[in-house]
Lab assay of single mutants.
Amino acid sequence: EDDHHMEFCRVCKDGGELLCCDTCPSSYHIHCLNPPLPEIPNGEWLCPRCTCP
């Protein structure tokens, strides 16, 4: 699979289990988001950068 997502968290710059945005290459740990997510959501997810007006 050709995955163009970042291999590190945009916030802390560390790797591991990352949540990938469905519209851009950004990846995040769920605990690095503000507010943090309790678990990885099902379905499409947009990062804070893509949901800002």
Rank of each mutant, 00 (worst) to 15 (best):
L37I: 11
H4G: 05
T23F: 06
I30L: 12
E44F: 08
K13N: 07
L33C: 04
H5G: 14
N34S: 13
E44Y: 09
C12E: 09
P41H: 08
C24Q: 00
C12A: 01
I40K: 14
M6V: 11
P38S: 10
I40D: 08
D2I: 15
H31A: 08
C24L: 01
C9S: 01
P38C: 07
P48L: 02
R49T: 13
E44I: 09
V11N: 09
S27C: 12
L19Q: 08
S27N: 12
C52I: 07
C32I: 00
P38H: 12
G43V: 10
H5F: 15
P53A: 14
F8S: 09
C52Y: 12
C20E: 15
L46A: 11
G16F: 03
L37W: 06
C24E: 00
E7D: 11
P41K: 09
G43C: 08
E39N: 13
D14I: 07
L46N: 15
H4I: 13
C50L: 01
E44N: 14
P25H: 12
P36C: 03
K13S: 09
D3E: 07
D14P: 00
D14R: 11
T23N: 14
P36Y: 03
D2P: 06
C52W: 11
C24A: 01
C9F: 02
T51N: 15
L19W: 04
C12G: 03
N42T: 14
D2C: 04
C47N: 03
P38T: 12
R10V: 11
E17D: 06
H29P: 01
H5L: 05
D2G: 15
C50F: 00
C21F: 00
L18Q: 04
G43R: 11
C52N: 08
P35F: 04
Y28G: 03
L19P: 04
E7P: 04
L37N: 06
I40Y: 13
P48Q: 05
D2A: 14
Y28Q: 02
R49S: 09
T23H: 09
C21E: 06
D22W: 06
N34D: 09
L18P: 00
C52L: 12
D3G: 05
C47F: 01
D2E: 15
Y28I: 04
P25F: 07
P48V: 03
E7N: 02
G16E: 13
D3T: 15
C32L: 00
H29Y: 01
G43F: 07
P41M: 07
